[in-house]
Computed example of a mutant assay.
Amino acid sequence: MDAIEAAQGFSAMGSDSRLEVLQTLVRAGETGLRVGDIQQRTGITASTLAHHLKFLSAANLIVQRKQGRVIMSTANFDHLSALAGFILENCCIDAGETT
């Protein structure tokens, strides 16, 4: 993962509402949730939720798939793990240095 891709992912999480949606989907696990279920759990209005889901999807933080008439949203666990790895890959590397 490069810095630009990481910045896009972290930026997409920069809204409390989007972060709430993402955490709701993480809690739901691999099966994901229908849009109506996300709305019910978060209390976000339908039009606003649609905007947040589009933003999260564009940043590759969630995956949306159609199952018949229903759109299921799932957290993109691989991408979220890559983001965590990106931010932590150099953890503590300079801990022993003094200035």
Rank of each mutant, 00 (worst) to 15 (best):
M1D: 00
E5M: 05
A6N: 09
A7F: 15
G9F: 08
G9C: 07
F10R: 00
S11K: 09
G14I: 04
S15P: 05
S17L: 12
R18M: 04
R18H: 08
E20K: 15
V21P: 04
L22R: 07
Q23V: 05
T24I: 04
L25V: 05
L25Q: 03
V26T: 06
V26N: 01
R27S: 09
G29Q: 09
T31I: 07
T31W: 01
L33Y: 06
V35F: 03
V35I: 15
V35R: 15
G36H: 04
I38M: 06
Q39N: 05
G43R: 08
L49R: 03
L49S: 01
A50T: 12
H51D: 01
H51A: 06
H52W: 04
K54S: 13
A58Q: 15
N60C: 03
L61K: 07
L61T: 02
L61R: 05
L61Y: 10
I62T: 14
V63Y: 04
Q64Y: 09
R65S: 13
K66Q: 15
K66D: 01
Q67T: 11
G68M: 08
R69Q: 10
M72V: 15
M72Q: 09
S73E: 02
N76D: 15
F77D: 07
S81H: 11
A82N: 09
L83I: 07
A84T: 05
C91Y: 06
I93C: 02
I93F: 08
A95C: 09
A95R: 15
A95Q: 14
G96P: 00
T98F: 12
T98Q: 11
